[in-house]
Design a protein around this nucleic acid. Structure first.
Length: 534
RNA sequence: GCGCUUGUAGCUCAAUUGGAUAGAGCAUCUGAUUACGGAUCAGAAGGUUGGGGGUUCGAGUCCCUCCAAGCGUACCA
Protein backbone atom coordinates (compact mmCIF):
# COMPACT_ATOMS: atom_id res chain seq x y z
CA UNK A 1 0.00 0.00 0.00
CA UNK A 2 1.11 3.52 -0.76
CA UNK A 3 1.24 4.53 2.85
CA UNK A 4 3.68 1.78 3.73
CA UNK A 5 5.83 2.65 0.75
CA UNK A 6 6.00 6.27 1.82
CA UNK A 7 6.75 5.35 5.41
CA UNK A 8 9.55 3.05 4.32
CA UNK A 9 11.01 5.85 2.23
CA UNK A 10 10.82 8.21 5.20
CA UNK A 11 12.61 5.68 7.38
CA UNK A 12 15.38 5.28 4.84
CA UNK A 13 15.75 9.01 4.55
CA UNK A 14 15.92 9.48 8.30
CA UNK A 15 18.61 6.85 8.66
CA UNK A 16 20.51 8.51 5.85
CA UNK A 17 20.27 11.80 7.75
CA UNK A 18 21.77 10.31 10.87
CA UNK A 19 18.67 9.41 12.85
CA UNK A 20 19.88 6.00 13.99
CA UNK A 21 16.77 4.84 15.77
CA UNK A 22 13.62 6.14 14.18
CA UNK A 23 11.13 7.16 16.89
CA UNK A 24 7.85 5.23 17.04
CA UNK A 25 5.87 8.41 16.65
CA UNK A 26 6.96 8.87 13.05
CA UNK A 27 3.89 8.34 10.90
CA UNK A 28 2.61 8.99 7.43
CA UNK A 29 -0.92 10.30 7.49
CA UNK A 30 -3.51 12.11 5.49
CA UNK A 31 -3.44 15.84 6.11
CA UNK A 32 -6.70 17.32 7.25
CA UNK A 33 -6.56 19.90 4.48
CA UNK A 34 -6.24 19.14 0.80
CA UNK A 35 -3.78 21.94 0.15
CA UNK A 36 -1.33 20.14 2.42
CA UNK A 37 -0.96 17.41 -0.16
CA UNK A 38 -2.06 13.82 -0.38
CA UNK A 39 0.09 12.45 2.39
CA UNK A 40 2.21 13.99 5.06
CA UNK A 41 4.77 12.98 7.64
CA UNK A 42 5.60 14.40 11.03
CA UNK A 43 9.03 12.72 10.90
CA UNK A 44 11.04 15.90 11.23
CA UNK A 45 9.02 17.14 14.21
CA UNK A 46 9.38 13.89 16.08
CA UNK A 47 13.05 13.23 15.25
CA UNK A 48 14.50 16.71 15.48
CA UNK A 49 15.43 16.55 19.13
CA UNK A 50 17.39 13.32 18.77
CA UNK A 51 19.74 14.78 16.16
CA UNK A 52 19.92 18.24 17.69
CA UNK A 53 18.46 20.09 14.75
CA UNK A 54 15.41 22.26 14.58
CA UNK A 55 12.39 20.65 12.96
CA UNK A 56 12.29 22.87 9.90
CA UNK A 57 15.94 22.32 9.17
CA UNK A 58 15.61 18.56 9.47
CA UNK A 59 12.39 18.69 7.50
CA UNK A 60 14.10 20.48 4.63
CA UNK A 61 16.90 17.91 4.56
CA UNK A 62 14.30 15.15 4.64
CA UNK A 63 12.33 16.70 1.79
CA UNK A 64 15.50 17.15 -0.28
CA UNK A 65 16.54 13.57 0.23
CA UNK A 66 13.08 12.23 -0.58
CA UNK A 67 12.96 14.45 -3.64
CA UNK A 68 16.17 12.92 -4.89
CA UNK A 69 14.86 9.42 -4.18
CA UNK A 70 11.19 9.68 -5.03
CA UNK A 71 8.84 6.94 -3.93
CA UNK A 72 6.25 5.77 -6.49
CA UNK A 73 3.62 8.28 -7.68
CA UNK A 74 5.28 11.16 -5.82
CA UNK A 75 5.26 14.32 -7.90
CA UNK A 76 6.31 16.96 -5.43
CA UNK A 77 7.49 17.39 -1.89
CA UNK A 78 7.29 20.41 0.31
CA UNK A 79 7.95 21.41 3.83
CA UNK A 80 5.23 23.28 5.66
CA UNK A 81 4.13 24.56 9.00
CA UNK A 82 6.36 23.64 11.93
CA UNK A 83 8.16 20.99 9.88
CA UNK A 84 5.68 18.70 8.21
CA UNK A 85 6.87 17.16 4.97
CA UNK A 86 4.01 16.93 2.51
CA UNK A 87 3.79 14.56 -0.44
CA UNK A 88 1.93 15.48 -3.57
CA UNK A 89 1.06 12.43 -5.61
CA UNK A 90 0.04 11.95 -9.21
CA UNK A 91 -3.56 10.74 -9.67
CA UNK A 92 -2.12 7.41 -10.73
CA UNK A 93 -1.97 6.34 -7.11
CA UNK A 94 -5.74 6.65 -6.96
CA UNK A 95 -6.18 4.77 -10.22
CA UNK A 96 -4.31 1.94 -8.55
CA UNK A 97 -6.85 2.11 -5.74
CA UNK A 98 -9.68 1.59 -8.19
CA UNK A 99 -8.00 -1.50 -9.55
CA UNK A 100 -7.46 -2.80 -6.04
CA UNK A 101 -11.10 -2.27 -5.07
CA UNK A 102 -12.33 -4.07 -8.16
CA UNK A 103 -9.83 -6.91 -7.92
CA UNK A 104 -10.53 -7.59 -4.29
CA UNK A 105 -14.23 -6.85 -4.45
CA UNK A 106 -16.88 -6.90 -1.78
CA UNK A 107 -15.44 -10.00 -0.22
CA UNK A 108 -11.90 -8.80 0.28
CA UNK A 109 -11.35 -5.09 -0.19
CA UNK A 110 -10.35 -3.61 3.16
CA UNK A 111 -10.05 -7.06 4.66
CA UNK A 112 -7.34 -6.99 7.31
CA UNK A 113 -5.45 -9.66 9.15
CA UNK A 114 -4.67 -7.76 12.34
CA UNK A 115 -6.89 -10.09 14.36
CA UNK A 116 -4.52 -12.91 13.47
CA UNK A 117 -7.25 -15.51 13.89
CA UNK A 118 -7.89 -14.70 17.54
CA UNK A 119 -11.20 -16.17 18.64
CA UNK A 120 -13.33 -13.58 20.37
CA UNK A 121 -16.48 -14.22 22.34
CA UNK A 122 -18.78 -11.21 22.29
CA UNK A 123 -21.75 -11.12 24.61
CA UNK A 124 -24.37 -8.42 24.29
CA UNK A 125 -28.00 -7.51 24.85
CA UNK A 126 -28.61 -10.40 27.29
CA UNK A 127 -31.81 -8.69 28.36
CA UNK A 128 -33.76 -10.49 31.07
CA UNK A 129 -36.36 -12.80 29.49
CA UNK A 130 -39.16 -11.16 31.41
CA UNK A 131 -40.53 -8.93 28.70
CA UNK A 132 -39.87 -7.33 25.33
CA UNK A 133 -36.54 -5.67 24.64
CA UNK A 134 -36.84 -1.94 24.95
CA UNK A 135 -35.55 0.61 22.52
CA UNK A 136 -32.52 1.30 24.68
CA UNK A 137 -31.43 -2.33 24.42
CA UNK A 138 -31.48 -2.02 20.66
CA UNK A 139 -28.30 0.01 20.86
CA UNK A 140 -26.37 -2.99 22.17
CA UNK A 141 -27.85 -5.22 19.51
CA UNK A 142 -26.80 -2.90 16.71
CA UNK A 143 -23.43 -2.20 18.25
CA UNK A 144 -22.51 -5.75 19.22
CA UNK A 145 -23.55 -7.24 15.92
CA UNK A 146 -21.64 -4.65 13.92
CA UNK A 147 -18.59 -5.02 16.11
CA UNK A 148 -18.64 -8.75 15.39
CA UNK A 149 -18.93 -8.11 11.66
CA UNK A 150 -16.09 -5.62 11.83
CA UNK A 151 -13.86 -7.99 13.76
CA UNK A 152 -14.59 -10.78 11.32
CA UNK A 153 -13.45 -8.56 8.47
CA UNK A 154 -10.29 -7.67 10.35
CA UNK A 155 -9.06 -11.18 10.88
CA UNK A 156 -10.67 -12.10 14.17
CA UNK A 157 -13.00 -15.03 14.65
CA UNK A 158 -15.91 -13.62 16.60
CA UNK A 159 -18.57 -15.68 18.30
CA UNK A 160 -21.66 -13.84 19.48
CA UNK A 161 -23.71 -14.79 22.52
CA UNK A 162 -26.86 -13.87 24.34
CA UNK A 163 -26.94 -14.89 28.00
CA UNK A 164 -30.38 -15.89 29.20
CA UNK A 165 -31.06 -15.27 32.88
CA UNK A 166 -33.79 -17.89 32.92
CA UNK A 167 -33.80 -18.69 36.60
CA UNK A 168 -33.92 -16.83 39.89
CA UNK A 169 -36.15 -14.45 41.72
CA UNK A 170 -37.01 -12.19 38.79
CA UNK A 171 -38.20 -15.01 36.57
CA UNK A 172 -40.40 -16.42 39.32
CA UNK A 173 -41.90 -13.01 39.90
CA UNK A 174 -42.48 -12.69 36.19
CA UNK A 175 -44.30 -16.04 36.13
CA UNK A 176 -46.42 -15.02 39.09
CA UNK A 177 -47.29 -11.77 37.39
CA UNK A 178 -48.45 -13.62 34.28
CA UNK A 179 -50.49 -16.05 36.34
CA UNK A 180 -52.09 -13.23 38.29
CA UNK A 181 -52.95 -11.33 35.13
CA UNK A 182 -54.49 -14.43 33.63
CA UNK A 183 -56.57 -15.07 36.74
CA UNK A 184 -57.56 -11.44 36.92
CA UNK A 185 -55.83 -11.05 40.26
CA UNK A 186 -53.79 -8.10 41.40
CA UNK A 187 -50.14 -7.91 40.35
CA UNK A 188 -47.90 -9.37 43.06
CA UNK A 189 -45.71 -7.10 45.15
CA UNK A 190 -42.80 -5.81 42.99
CA UNK A 191 -44.29 -7.79 40.11
CA UNK A 192 -44.31 -6.96 36.42
CA UNK A 193 -46.98 -4.74 34.97
CA UNK A 194 -47.73 -3.40 31.57
CA UNK A 195 -49.74 -4.08 28.49
CA UNK A 196 -47.48 -6.89 27.38
CA UNK A 197 -48.16 -8.82 30.60
CA UNK A 198 -51.89 -8.74 29.90
CA UNK A 199 -51.36 -9.63 26.26
CA UNK A 200 -49.11 -12.54 27.02
CA UNK A 201 -51.29 -13.77 29.87
CA UNK A 202 -54.19 -13.90 27.44
CA UNK A 203 -52.11 -16.07 25.10
CA UNK A 204 -50.96 -18.41 27.85
CA UNK A 205 -52.54 -21.89 27.86
CA UNK A 206 -54.05 -23.22 31.09
CA UNK A 207 -51.88 -26.24 31.66
CA UNK A 208 -48.42 -24.67 31.57
CA UNK A 209 -45.92 -23.48 34.11
CA UNK A 210 -46.23 -19.70 33.82
CA UNK A 211 -42.53 -19.05 34.43
CA UNK A 212 -41.27 -21.53 31.87
CA UNK A 213 -43.89 -20.51 29.36
CA UNK A 214 -43.29 -16.82 29.97
CA UNK A 215 -39.55 -17.08 29.48
CA UNK A 216 -40.05 -18.95 26.23
CA UNK A 217 -42.60 -16.37 25.10
CA UNK A 218 -40.21 -13.57 25.91
CA UNK A 219 -37.27 -15.24 24.17
CA UNK A 220 -39.29 -15.88 21.05
CA UNK A 221 -40.17 -12.23 21.01
CA UNK A 222 -36.54 -11.19 21.46
CA UNK A 223 -35.23 -13.53 18.80
CA UNK A 224 -37.73 -12.24 16.29
CA UNK A 225 -37.17 -8.59 16.91
CA UNK A 226 -33.39 -8.95 16.91
CA UNK A 227 -33.54 -10.93 13.69
CA UNK A 228 -35.64 -8.15 12.20
CA UNK A 229 -32.81 -5.81 13.14
CA UNK A 230 -30.45 -8.15 11.34
CA UNK A 231 -28.86 -9.20 14.63
CA UNK A 232 -28.17 -12.92 14.95
CA UNK A 233 -26.44 -14.75 17.78
CA UNK A 234 -24.25 -17.81 17.41
CA UNK A 235 -25.16 -19.03 20.87
CA UNK A 236 -28.01 -18.46 23.30
CA UNK A 237 -26.67 -19.59 26.67
CA UNK A 238 -29.09 -20.62 29.37
CA UNK A 239 -28.19 -19.85 32.97
CA UNK A 240 -30.62 -22.51 34.07
CA UNK A 241 -28.96 -25.20 31.97
CA UNK A 242 -25.58 -24.18 33.33
CA UNK A 243 -26.78 -24.39 36.91
CA UNK A 244 -28.51 -27.72 36.36
CA UNK A 245 -25.26 -29.10 35.00
CA UNK A 246 -23.62 -28.22 38.31
CA UNK A 247 -21.44 -25.43 36.99
CA UNK A 248 -21.74 -23.37 40.16
CA UNK A 249 -20.29 -26.02 42.44
CA UNK A 250 -17.54 -26.63 39.93
CA UNK A 251 -16.54 -23.02 39.64
CA UNK A 252 -16.70 -22.65 43.42
CA UNK A 253 -14.21 -25.49 43.76
CA UNK A 254 -11.88 -23.88 41.31
CA UNK A 255 -12.17 -20.55 43.07
CA UNK A 256 -11.34 -22.18 46.37
CA UNK A 257 -8.09 -23.39 44.87
CA UNK A 258 -7.09 -19.77 44.42
CA UNK A 259 -7.20 -19.34 48.21
CA UNK A 260 -9.37 -16.25 47.83
CA UNK A 261 -12.60 -17.78 49.11
CA UNK A 262 -13.53 -17.25 52.75
CA UNK A 263 -16.52 -17.40 55.11
CA UNK A 264 -17.84 -14.40 57.00
CA UNK A 265 -21.18 -13.68 58.69
CA UNK A 266 -22.49 -17.03 57.52
CA UNK A 267 -21.87 -16.23 53.88
CA UNK A 268 -19.16 -17.31 51.46
CA UNK A 269 -17.09 -14.52 49.97
CA UNK A 270 -14.60 -14.04 47.16
CA UNK A 271 -11.72 -11.71 47.86
CA UNK A 272 -12.15 -9.74 44.64
CA UNK A 273 -10.47 -6.76 46.27
CA UNK A 274 -7.22 -8.70 45.76
CA UNK A 275 -7.48 -7.89 42.06
CA UNK A 276 -8.74 -4.36 41.92
CA UNK A 277 -12.35 -4.50 43.06
CA UNK A 278 -13.38 -1.99 45.70
CA UNK A 279 -14.98 -4.61 47.97
CA UNK A 280 -15.14 -8.35 48.32
CA UNK A 281 -18.23 -10.05 46.93
CA UNK A 282 -20.59 -12.72 48.17
CA UNK A 283 -20.71 -16.05 46.32
CA UNK A 284 -23.16 -17.86 48.61
CA UNK A 285 -25.63 -15.94 50.75
CA UNK A 286 -26.15 -16.82 54.40
CA UNK A 287 -29.42 -18.49 53.42
CA UNK A 288 -27.42 -20.96 51.35
CA UNK A 289 -28.44 -19.58 47.95
CA UNK A 290 -25.91 -18.57 45.33
CA UNK A 291 -25.84 -14.93 44.36
CA UNK A 292 -26.24 -13.87 40.72
CA UNK A 293 -22.48 -13.48 40.65
CA UNK A 294 -21.56 -17.15 41.08
CA UNK A 295 -23.35 -18.68 38.09
CA UNK A 296 -22.24 -15.68 36.08
CA UNK A 297 -18.61 -16.51 36.84
CA UNK A 298 -19.33 -20.06 35.74
CA UNK A 299 -20.86 -18.68 32.56
CA UNK A 300 -17.84 -16.51 31.81
CA UNK A 301 -15.56 -19.46 32.37
CA UNK A 302 -17.74 -21.44 30.00
CA UNK A 303 -17.44 -18.74 27.37
CA UNK A 304 -13.70 -19.38 27.15
CA UNK A 305 -14.71 -22.62 25.42
CA UNK A 306 -15.98 -20.41 22.61
CA UNK A 307 -13.29 -17.76 22.47
CA UNK A 308 -9.84 -16.99 23.83
CA UNK A 309 -10.77 -13.36 24.30
CA UNK A 310 -13.98 -12.28 26.00
CA UNK A 311 -15.88 -9.09 25.35
CA UNK A 312 -18.85 -8.07 27.47
CA UNK A 313 -20.90 -5.18 26.20
CA UNK A 314 -22.64 -3.58 29.14
CA UNK A 315 -24.81 -0.56 29.66
CA UNK A 316 -23.43 2.13 31.93
CA UNK A 317 -25.86 1.04 34.61
CA UNK A 318 -23.85 -2.17 34.97
CA UNK A 319 -20.36 -0.71 34.84
CA UNK A 320 -19.76 -1.43 38.50
CA UNK A 321 -19.96 -5.11 37.70
CA UNK A 322 -16.81 -5.31 35.59
CA UNK A 323 -14.13 -5.18 38.31
CA UNK A 324 -15.53 -8.12 40.27
CA UNK A 325 -15.85 -10.30 37.18
CA UNK A 326 -12.34 -9.46 36.11
CA UNK A 327 -11.08 -10.28 39.60
CA UNK A 328 -12.91 -13.61 39.57
CA UNK A 329 -11.48 -14.55 36.19
CA UNK A 330 -7.97 -13.65 37.29
CA UNK A 331 -8.49 -15.81 40.36
CA UNK A 332 -9.39 -18.62 37.97
CA UNK A 333 -6.08 -18.16 36.19
CA UNK A 334 -7.30 -16.21 33.17
CA UNK A 335 -5.07 -13.39 31.94
CA UNK A 336 -6.49 -10.01 32.92
CA UNK A 337 -6.26 -8.72 29.35
CA UNK A 338 -8.35 -11.61 28.01
CA UNK A 339 -11.45 -10.12 29.60
CA UNK A 340 -12.62 -6.91 28.02
CA UNK A 341 -15.63 -4.89 29.03
CA UNK A 342 -17.11 -2.26 26.78
CA UNK A 343 -19.28 0.17 28.66
CA UNK A 344 -21.86 1.83 26.50
CA UNK A 345 -23.67 4.91 27.68
CA UNK A 346 -27.38 4.46 27.97
CA UNK A 347 -29.96 5.61 25.51
CA UNK A 348 -32.33 8.35 26.49
CA UNK A 349 -35.67 8.23 24.76
CA UNK A 350 -37.55 11.42 24.19
CA UNK A 351 -41.14 11.65 23.10
CA UNK A 352 -43.21 14.80 22.92
CA UNK A 353 -40.21 16.68 24.20
CA UNK A 354 -39.98 14.78 27.45
CA UNK A 355 -37.86 11.86 28.48
CA UNK A 356 -39.49 8.44 28.65
CA UNK A 357 -38.28 6.63 31.75
CA UNK A 358 -38.18 2.96 31.08
CA UNK A 359 -38.91 0.20 33.49
CA UNK A 360 -40.12 -3.28 32.70
CA UNK A 361 -41.61 -3.69 36.10
CA UNK A 362 -43.58 -0.47 35.89
CA UNK A 363 -44.61 -1.46 32.38
CA UNK A 364 -43.51 1.86 31.00
CA UNK A 365 -41.36 0.85 28.10
CA UNK A 366 -40.83 1.74 24.50
CA UNK A 367 -40.23 -1.54 22.77
CA UNK A 368 -37.60 -1.92 20.11
CA UNK A 369 -40.42 -3.56 18.16
CA UNK A 370 -42.35 -0.29 18.17
CA UNK A 371 -39.33 1.62 16.96
CA UNK A 372 -38.70 -0.79 14.11
CA UNK A 373 -42.33 -0.87 13.08
CA UNK A 374 -42.42 2.90 13.10
CA UNK A 375 -39.21 3.84 11.28
CA UNK A 376 -37.91 0.57 9.84
CA UNK A 377 -34.97 -1.59 10.78
CA UNK A 378 -32.47 0.23 8.58
CA UNK A 379 -33.25 3.65 10.02
CA UNK A 380 -33.16 2.35 13.57
CA UNK A 381 -29.94 0.48 13.12
CA UNK A 382 -28.20 3.33 11.34
CA UNK A 383 -29.36 5.73 14.03
CA UNK A 384 -27.88 3.54 16.75
CA UNK A 385 -24.58 3.35 14.89
CA UNK A 386 -24.35 7.03 14.07
CA UNK A 387 -22.35 7.85 17.16
CA UNK A 388 -19.83 6.45 19.59
CA UNK A 389 -21.18 4.22 22.38
CA UNK A 390 -18.99 6.28 24.71
CA UNK A 391 -21.42 9.13 24.53
CA UNK A 392 -24.97 9.04 25.78
CA UNK A 393 -27.49 8.83 22.99
CA UNK A 394 -30.70 10.74 22.75
CA UNK A 395 -33.29 9.22 20.48
CA UNK A 396 -36.13 11.56 19.78
CA UNK A 397 -38.88 9.20 18.71
CA UNK A 398 -40.91 11.93 17.08
CA UNK A 399 -37.93 13.27 15.19
CA UNK A 400 -36.86 9.83 14.09
CA UNK A 401 -40.23 9.04 12.61
CA UNK A 402 -41.14 12.42 11.15
CA UNK A 403 -37.70 12.84 9.63
CA UNK A 404 -37.46 9.27 8.49
CA UNK A 405 -37.17 10.33 4.88
CA UNK A 406 -34.36 12.77 5.67
CA UNK A 407 -32.46 10.23 7.67
CA UNK A 408 -28.80 9.90 6.65
CA UNK A 409 -29.32 6.22 5.96
CA UNK A 410 -31.39 7.12 2.91
CA UNK A 411 -28.66 9.38 1.64
CA UNK A 412 -26.32 6.41 1.62
CA UNK A 413 -28.84 3.96 0.25
CA UNK A 414 -29.82 6.43 -2.43
CA UNK A 415 -26.24 6.53 -3.67
CA UNK A 416 -26.39 2.77 -4.01
CA UNK A 417 -29.74 2.92 -5.79
CA UNK A 418 -28.34 5.47 -8.24
CA UNK A 419 -25.45 3.20 -9.11
CA UNK A 420 -27.83 0.36 -9.80
CA UNK A 421 -29.99 2.71 -11.81
CA UNK A 422 -26.99 3.53 -13.99
CA UNK A 423 -26.45 -0.17 -14.46
CA UNK A 424 -30.03 -0.70 -15.53
CA UNK A 425 -29.96 2.25 -17.89
CA UNK A 426 -26.66 1.13 -19.40
CA UNK A 427 -28.02 -2.36 -19.97
CA UNK A 428 -31.02 -0.90 -21.71
CA UNK A 429 -28.79 1.07 -24.03
CA UNK A 430 -26.60 -1.93 -24.67
CA UNK A 431 -23.57 -0.42 -22.93
CA UNK A 432 -21.30 -2.86 -21.17
CA UNK A 433 -18.18 -2.51 -19.09
CA UNK A 434 -15.20 -3.82 -20.93
CA UNK A 435 -12.51 -5.67 -18.96
CA UNK A 436 -10.81 -3.34 -16.52
CA UNK A 437 -7.34 -4.31 -17.68
CA UNK A 438 -8.06 -2.71 -21.03
CA UNK A 439 -9.58 0.50 -19.67
CA UNK A 440 -7.55 3.69 -19.59
CA UNK A 441 -8.07 5.03 -16.08
CA UNK A 442 -5.86 8.07 -16.65
CA UNK A 443 -8.92 9.92 -17.93
CA UNK A 444 -10.16 9.99 -14.35
CA UNK A 445 -8.79 13.36 -13.36
CA UNK A 446 -11.86 15.34 -12.33
CA UNK A 447 -11.75 16.40 -8.70
CA UNK A 448 -15.06 14.60 -8.11
CA UNK A 449 -13.65 11.40 -9.49
CA UNK A 450 -10.49 11.64 -7.48
CA UNK A 451 -12.43 12.36 -4.31
CA UNK A 452 -14.43 9.14 -4.64
CA UNK A 453 -11.19 7.22 -5.03
CA UNK A 454 -9.61 9.05 -2.12
CA UNK A 455 -12.46 8.01 0.15
CA UNK A 456 -12.29 4.44 -1.11
CA UNK A 457 -8.57 4.39 -0.47
CA UNK A 458 -9.10 5.19 3.18
CA UNK A 459 -11.26 2.16 3.98
CA UNK A 460 -8.44 -0.08 5.25
CA UNK A 461 -7.23 2.65 7.61
CA UNK A 462 -10.76 3.37 8.79
CA UNK A 463 -11.39 -0.29 9.49
CA UNK A 464 -8.13 -0.63 11.35
CA UNK A 465 -8.92 2.26 13.65
CA UNK A 466 -12.53 1.21 14.00
CA UNK A 467 -11.71 -2.33 15.06
CA UNK A 468 -8.92 -1.33 17.41
CA UNK A 469 -11.16 1.17 19.13
CA UNK A 470 -14.22 -1.07 18.96
CA UNK A 471 -15.88 1.80 17.16
CA UNK A 472 -18.20 0.67 14.36
CA UNK A 473 -19.60 4.19 14.17
CA UNK A 474 -16.45 5.11 12.27
CA UNK A 475 -17.70 2.87 9.50
CA UNK A 476 -20.92 4.87 9.52
CA UNK A 477 -18.98 8.08 9.13
CA UNK A 478 -16.97 6.58 6.30
CA UNK A 479 -19.91 5.23 4.37
CA UNK A 480 -21.56 8.66 4.60
CA UNK A 481 -18.40 10.23 3.21
CA UNK A 482 -18.35 7.75 0.37
CA UNK A 483 -21.99 8.46 -0.44
CA UNK A 484 -21.30 12.19 -0.42
CA UNK A 485 -18.35 11.76 -2.76
CA UNK A 486 -20.41 9.61 -5.07
CA UNK A 487 -23.34 12.04 -5.19
CA UNK A 488 -20.91 14.81 -6.10
CA UNK A 489 -19.36 12.68 -8.82
CA UNK A 490 -22.76 11.66 -10.11
CA UNK A 491 -23.84 15.25 -10.37
CA UNK A 492 -20.79 16.59 -12.16
CA UNK A 493 -19.53 13.64 -14.14
CA UNK A 494 -22.19 12.15 -16.39
CA UNK A 495 -21.54 8.63 -17.55
CA UNK A 496 -24.19 7.66 -20.07
CA UNK A 497 -24.79 11.02 -21.71
CA UNK A 498 -24.39 10.82 -25.46
CA UNK A 499 -21.50 13.30 -25.67
CA UNK A 500 -19.28 11.34 -23.26
CA UNK A 501 -16.23 9.79 -24.88
CA UNK A 502 -16.18 5.98 -24.76
CA UNK A 503 -12.88 5.96 -22.80
CA UNK A 504 -14.30 8.29 -20.18
CA UNK A 505 -17.53 6.35 -20.07
CA UNK A 506 -15.71 3.09 -19.43
CA UNK A 507 -13.54 4.55 -16.71
CA UNK A 508 -16.54 6.14 -15.01
CA UNK A 509 -18.56 2.95 -15.20
CA UNK A 510 -15.78 1.24 -13.32
CA UNK A 511 -15.61 4.06 -10.83
CA UNK A 512 -19.33 3.64 -10.17
CA UNK A 513 -18.80 -0.06 -9.73
CA UNK A 514 -15.99 0.56 -7.24
CA UNK A 515 -18.31 2.90 -5.36
CA UNK A 516 -20.93 0.20 -5.26
CA UNK A 517 -18.40 -2.21 -3.78
CA UNK A 518 -17.46 0.31 -1.10
CA UNK A 519 -21.06 1.03 -0.18
CA UNK A 520 -21.85 -2.67 -0.05
CA UNK A 521 -18.95 -3.31 2.31
CA UNK A 522 -19.81 -0.43 4.59
CA UNK A 523 -23.53 -1.12 4.76
CA UNK A 524 -22.94 -4.80 5.37
CA UNK A 525 -20.68 -4.01 8.31
CA UNK A 526 -23.46 -1.86 9.71
CA UNK A 527 -26.05 -4.54 9.10
CA UNK A 528 -28.04 -2.20 6.91
CA UNK A 529 -29.50 -3.24 3.57
CA UNK A 530 -28.27 -1.93 0.22
CA UNK A 531 -31.44 -1.70 -1.88
CA UNK A 532 -31.20 -1.39 -5.65
CA UNK A 533 -34.39 0.66 -5.86
CA UNK A 534 -35.88 3.06 -3.39
C1' G B 1 -19.00 11.30 50.23
C1' C B 2 -16.39 7.89 46.91
C1' G B 3 -15.99 5.53 41.94
C1' C B 4 -16.91 5.18 36.46
C1' U B 5 -18.49 7.99 32.20
C1' U B 6 -19.76 12.38 29.64
C1' G B 7 -19.56 17.95 28.51
C1' U B 8 -17.66 20.46 21.06
C1' A B 9 -22.35 25.25 16.34
C1' G B 10 -29.58 26.59 18.04
C1' C B 11 -30.39 20.72 17.90
C1' U B 12 -28.13 15.54 17.04
C1' C B 13 -23.18 14.19 16.62
C1' A B 14 -17.83 13.76 14.13
C1' A B 15 -12.76 14.93 14.60
C1' U B 16 -7.05 10.00 11.35
C1' U B 17 -6.08 8.87 19.68
C1' G B 18 -1.12 14.74 20.48
C1' G B 19 -0.98 17.48 14.41
C1' A B 20 -1.52 22.38 10.43
C1' U B 21 -7.36 27.12 9.71
C1' A B 22 -12.26 21.96 14.97
C1' G B 23 -15.95 19.23 10.60
C1' A B 24 -20.98 16.86 8.99
C1' G B 25 -26.36 16.33 9.20
C1' C B 26 -30.90 18.78 10.81
C1' A B 27 -33.01 23.65 11.28
C1' U B 28 -32.33 29.01 8.81
C1' C B 29 -31.04 31.91 4.33
C1' U B 30 -29.34 32.02 -1.07
C1' G B 31 -28.36 29.66 -5.66
C1' A B 32 -28.24 25.18 -9.38
C1' U B 33 -32.30 20.85 -13.17
C1' U B 34 -33.07 20.43 -21.72
C1' A B 35 -28.88 15.25 -17.89
C1' C B 36 -27.81 8.38 -15.83
C1' G B 37 -33.40 8.89 -10.25
C1' G B 38 -33.53 16.56 -7.25
C1' A B 39 -34.25 11.39 -1.51
C1' U B 40 -29.08 15.42 -5.36
C1' C B 41 -25.31 19.48 -5.82
C1' A B 42 -23.00 24.48 -4.63
C1' G B 43 -22.78 28.57 -1.20
C1' A B 44 -23.90 31.74 3.36
C1' A B 45 -24.44 32.01 8.48
C1' G B 46 -23.48 29.60 12.96
C1' G B 47 -17.55 28.04 17.97
C1' U B 48 -13.47 31.30 23.93
C1' U B 49 -14.36 22.70 22.39
C1' G B 50 -18.13 23.84 30.41
C1' G B 51 -14.32 27.50 33.45
C1' G B 52 -9.18 28.01 35.05
C1' G B 53 -4.13 26.28 35.30
C1' G B 54 -0.16 22.94 33.52
C1' U B 55 2.90 19.56 30.19
C1' U B 56 5.54 20.69 24.54
C1' C B 57 7.43 22.35 18.58
C1' G B 58 1.78 21.67 18.81
C1' A B 59 -3.90 20.24 23.28
C1' G B 60 -10.99 19.23 21.85
C1' U B 61 -7.58 15.02 22.86
C1' C B 62 -2.70 14.10 28.18
C1' C B 63 -2.16 15.93 33.76
C1' C B 64 -4.24 18.98 37.99
C1' U B 65 -8.39 21.76 39.78
C1' C B 66 -13.25 23.65 39.93
C1' C B 67 -18.49 23.49 37.59
C1' A B 68 -22.50 20.60 35.45
C1' A B 69 -25.02 16.01 33.87
C1' G B 70 -25.75 10.51 33.68
C1' C B 71 -24.79 5.94 36.06
C1' G B 72 -23.05 3.08 40.07
C1' U B 73 -21.89 2.50 45.18
C1' A B 74 -26.76 -4.95 47.94
C1' C B 75 -25.86 -11.38 51.30
C1' C B 76 -30.97 -7.67 43.97
C1' A B 77 -30.58 -9.59 39.24
Amino acid sequence: MIRDQLLAAVHDALVHLGVDTVPDGVVVERPARREHGDWSTNAALVSAKAVGKNPRELGQALADHLDANRPPHVEALEIAGPGFVNFRLAPTWLHDVLIEVIDEGEADYGRLSIGDGLTVNIEFVSANPTGPIHAGGGRWGAYGDSLARLMARCGYEPHTEFYINDRGVQTVLFGQSLAAAKAGDETPEKGYKGVYIDDWAAEMPDDVDPTTWGIERSLTDSRLVLADMNVEFDTWSSEKALVEAGAEAEVLDRLKQSGLVYDKDGATWLKTSEYGDTDDRVLIKSDGEYTYFTPDIAYHLDKYNRGDHLIDILGADHHGYAPRMRAALIALGKPAESYEVIIGQNVKLVRDGTEVKMSKRAGDIVEIRDLIDEVGADVARFAYLLQSVDSPQTLDLDLLSTQASENPVFYVQYANARIHSIGREAAERGIERSPLSGVDLSVLDHERELEVLRVLSSLPEVLEVAVKERAPHKVTTWVRELAAAFHGFYRDCPILRSDIEPETQQARLWLAEASRVGLAIGLDLLGVSAPEHM
